[in-house]
Amino acid sequence: MTTAPAIDLRTFTTLDDVRGDLIDVYAEVRAPLLHLPNYAVTAFGDRLDRHGADPGFVAVLAYAKGHPVGYGYGNTIERGDRYWQRICPAPTEKYTESPALALKEGGVRPAWRGTGTARRIHDALLATREEPYVTLMVNPAAGDGKVHALYRSWGYKDIGSSQPSPASPVLSVMIRAND
């Protein structure tokens, strides 16, 4: 890991002031995939608007010299949430009996990968939360498996798979304690 220049981490609980920055970073992070319907910027914008209106929404963005270089966001999910309902096999009650934090999206501009920025965003986001568990879905093919392995190195474990929409790839569902 190389040392990154100084970044400023900012936390947001509404989309009002940050939607444009989220879309800007997303478009660069997912540039190789934007031709696929599920990854198109418009599809992301629709998901972002939906997630931003969900209970417990929080986003953390990293800025360098005033420009956004990475982001992560999520929200609270309760027992019975469609997030849990789409997982196969169904998660154990241990994970669903209390509200959990679902990390819905995250990414770091290519020039900032390998600098620790993604981990700093992740940890700052989790530090704002009290849910006992945090869960996420990852495309196991992302980065030739490197993204999945990265989450494992951060303490996440696989608990199943999910295909959130017909246009989405089958994703690995991961979870860890929020400690």
Rank of each mutant, 00 (worst) to 15 (best):
P32K: 06
P32Q: 03
P32Y: 13
L33V: 08
L34K: 06
L34D: 06
L34T: 08
L34R: 11
H35G: 01
H35E: 01
H35P: 03
L36P: 03
L36T: 13
L36Y: 05
L36V: 14
L36H: 10
P37V: 03
N38G: 08
N38Q: 11
N38C: 14
Y39F: 13
Y39H: 14
Y39I: 15
Y39W: 09
A40L: 10
A40F: 14
A40D: 08
V41W: 14
V41E: 12
T42I: 13
T42S: 11
T42C: 11
A43L: 03
A43D: 08
A43S: 05
A43G: 13
A43Q: 08
A43P: 09
F44L: 03
F44N: 01
F44E: 05
G45A: 08
D46V: 04
D46C: 03
R47H: 08
R47I: 02
R47A: 12
D49H: 08
D49A: 12
H51V: 09
G52Y: 06
G52Q: 13
A53K: 15
P55Q: 13
P55S: 00
P55A: 10
G56C: 09
G56E: 09
G56D: 01
F57Y: 04
A59L: 06
A59R: 02
L61F: 07
A62P: 07
Y63I: 15
Y63V: 04
Y63T: 03
A64S: 15
A64V: 13
K65C: 06
K65W: 05
K65E: 14
G66C: 07
H67K: 09
H67N: 15
H67S: 10
H67W: 11
P68R: 05
P68M: 10
G70C: 08
G70Q: 09
G70P: 07
G70I: 02
Y71I: 06
Y73K: 00
Y73D: 01
G74E: 01
G74W: 00
G74N: 04
G74H: 00
N75C: 11
N75E: 05
N75V: 13
T76A: 03
T76L: 02
I77T: 03
I77G: 04
